[in-house]
């Protein structure tokens, strides 16, 4: 087990290192950062001064080593488009918003997906089941921004239940969280349904029923707890959806999180911030995946040896 964890961690570190290199390379080909830092009428001396200050006068490989060195010390660099703030400060300022939104989206998807998944499994081949199937297929076919816009139109514009966009109290978070969780609801629901059906068919459930255990107890205590293992192992996928979705949903609802930050940074060509946020997202992605793999290997020992 330890060897397996070590191997996965080593792979993860390699992946993060490769991604940091890719983002560095991409940021450099994306146009001259001097265009952002300087007005057009800047003189030669000013250009030289700024170049020296940002280390842009050194050859590219030196810039790369400098960047890696800083990265190891946790220094992500100074933001170009946001005066007087470092990328780290910007991230620390925005990160709580993204975490709040993602956490709420996760809770929303769990609260909806598990009970509904169990329900459609019990009521297999009834209108409930077909409705659930339709909902799941729709969930896979709608882009996140379309879900967000349609929810915004129905619940904020037409019914006036929530504000359309911006940040503030809980009422600002509900629509974005539901839109962000929607895809996961569809995926989790399907997984819960299929694993519930499998468990409902086992001998120990039959035994529990023969023993005369109350039906709700059979379903929630005997079946649900066992059926939960499969959907839980898909949390890697769910993490990926939340990360990608937050970029889109934060743009739709003007929610001041990391996703909106990276879109702004891209528009302003602030490669320092783009690099920092993309690296953070990628690292989060890799770490979630490793955690899920290790958890999965813990639950199912066969995985460790393949």
């Amino acid at each position: 087990m330890q060897a397996y964890i070590l191997r996965r961690v080593a792979q993860g570190i390699l992946a993060i290192f490769v991604i940091s290199t890719i983002t560095f390379a991409l940021a450099r080909v994306s146009g001259d950062p001097l265009n952002v830092l300087l007005p057009e009428e800047a003189s030669e001396e000013q250009i030289e001064l700024i170049k020296a200050e940002w280390g842009l006068d050194k050859p590219l490989h030196m810039q790369y080593f400098q960047y890696l060195g800083k990265l190891f010390r946790g220094d992500l660099g100074e933001a170009m488009a946001w005066p007087n703030s470092t990328a780290t400060e910007l991230i620390i300022e925005r990160l709580p918003n993204t975490i709040k939104l993602s956490a709420l989206a996760l809770v929303v998807s769990g609260v909806i997906a598990f009970p509904v998944g169990v329900l459609v499994a019990i009521k297999k081949d009834t209108p409930f089941d077909y409705g659930g199937k339709l909902f799941a297929i729709l969930g896979q076919s709608a882009p996140t921004f379309a879900v967000g816009l349609i929810l915004m139109w129905i619940f904020a514009v037409q019914l006036n239940f929530f504000p359309t966009s911006g940040s503030g109290g809980v009422e600002y978070m509900i629509l974005p969280a539901v839109a962000l969780g929607y895809y996961n609801v569809a995926a989790l629901m399907r997984l819960t349904r299929s694993s519930m059906l499998e468990v409902l068919d086992t001998e120990y459930v039959k035994l529990a029923r023969i023993k005369g255990v109350a039906e709700w107890k059979v379903i929630w205590k005997h079946c649900f707890r066992n059926a939960l293992i499969v959907p839980l192992t898909y949390f890697g996928l769910i993490g990926a959806v939340l990360i990608t979705g937050s970029v889109v949903i934060e743009t739709v609802f003007a929610w001041p999180g990391l996703g909106a930050l990276v879109i702004d940074a891209i528009l302003f060509r602030d490669y320092v911030v783009v690099q920092a946020v993309v690296l953070l997202f990628a690292a989060a992605f890799v770490i979630i995946n490793i955690m899920v793999d290790v958890l999965y290997a813990y639950i199912d020992p066969r995985i460790r040896y393949t």
Partner: peptide
């Protein structure tokens, strides 16, 4: 392939599009 599949695709696409225009 592993590394590619371990990277959120929208982010990679965004960075790429900004890089190439």
């Amino acid at each position: 392939v592993d590394i590619k599949l371990a990277f959120p695709s929208i982010l990679l696409a965004l960075t790429l599009v900004v890089a190439i225009g």
